[in-house]
Design a protein around this nucleic acid. Sequence first.
DNA 1: CTATTTATAGACTGATCGTTTATTAAAATA
DNA 2: TATTTTAATAAACGATCAGTCTATAAATAG
Lengths: 222, 222
Amino acid sequence: MTESHNAPRRRGRPPKQPDGQLETRLALIRRGMEVLTERGFTATGLEGFLKQVGVPKGSFYHYFDSKEAFGRAVMDSYARYFERKLDRHLLNTQLSPLQRLDEFVADASAGMARHGFRRGCLVGNMGQEVAVLPDDFRQQLDAILHSWQQRLTVCLQAAQAQGELSAALDAEELAQFFWIGWEGAVLRARLQCSAAPLDVFYSGFLRMISANCSGSMISDTQ
Amino acid sequence: MTESHNAPRRRGRPPKQPDGQLETRLALIRRGMEVLTERGFTATGLEGFLKQVGVPKGSFYHYFDSKEAFGRAVMDSYARYFERKLDRHLLNTQLSPLQRLDEFVADASAGMARHGFRRGCLVGNMGQEVAVLPDDFRQQLDAILHSWQQRLTVCLQAAQAQGELSAALDAEELAQFFWIGWEGAVLRARLQCSAAPLDVFYSGFLRMISANCSGSMISDTQ
DNA sequence: CTATTTATAGACTGATCGTTTATTAAAATA
DNA sequence: TATTTTAATAAACGATCAGTCTATAAATAG
């Protein structure tokens, strides 16, 4: 008996959602973002994590093939969460482009303070674990940073278009510089339990892009 | 205590070295620096590590009270190793102060490349693990970074004294900025398996300190 | 010799790791 | 109702974790 045309109707209990975006699954991912941002991937044991979320172990493997697969899902979710946050700030046309970046930095800084500087950046955390993680993790993390970099590049180019930033500067190189340094600042802020490193880096970055510099970074004396 | 004057001579087998700086202990620490720089502390299992070094478990616990104590010893050793490296470069009076920093950066970059960008910075690695490490680890790591910062501050002040760097800049703040960004660059270099992030950060840093920043002062030197 | 201490050696412990298997509950069709 | 299929969970598994234990070899002193 092969089903026909538009109403095949399978026999048993149907999946809650076509793809599998269950309530429990979402709770696992949400809490996963928090915990992995604080403790990292390797150091987080499934047992203790699941106990926190109140989900039995058997259920976990119903939603995810493995801890690795879970890690990938959390990474994806974090990437989308952070991209939304970046877009919310960097595309806010009510502010000037550089003011938007100010707002993002202030928001991120307040976020770290709110969690007592215990949480860092999921990408930074897992980036340090890269040696003990599958190789596609590394590629994914790099891709995520690249997407952030792209968004900042656009914002900086807007700043150039509005005359807020010297057109002689390479916006993409500046964006690259920002994320390199920002990840370092987040790490340092956790070590110091203080927002000072974030401020030091960002004010330095602002000085750098507002200074009277010549076009490319590779031109230097000595 | 019936021992007298200058030849007490204890009873049993004497330690190989007066204080305990044994060959085996040193081998453990040396290899520990390498492994922890690559895989981090938490992700490194004692069993597998000791098998690599060829030291039985019984020996390990003869030299160290615990994995934690071992971690502290490795941290200490790495701090001293890195301080020696910094001093070698930053106190090299045959070069100008900024050239010394150039040399350090080139050396570090070559080192990362030599190990295929698999190894990062021990301080950066363990810094990300701070949430799952004893609190004194965090303090120690922060102190280590502070000592590096101090050394760079001195070097930058020397650059100011020689007119190589604007005296209007805050040398200590610049040094702070450098290490914040450098740790981020090392992390990113591992992710990209490339020295590019190191170059991007350092050339940006150079431009920042050579530009007419902080609203005052002469800029061009030489 | 015996006594004592350093250093090596590895089997063993209980806890926890990520994962698997088996079972029960629920929701649909027939 | 009975049947089918998926949702959800409980319990158990082998491997590995950090750490302990006992045993033994080596080197000194009495």
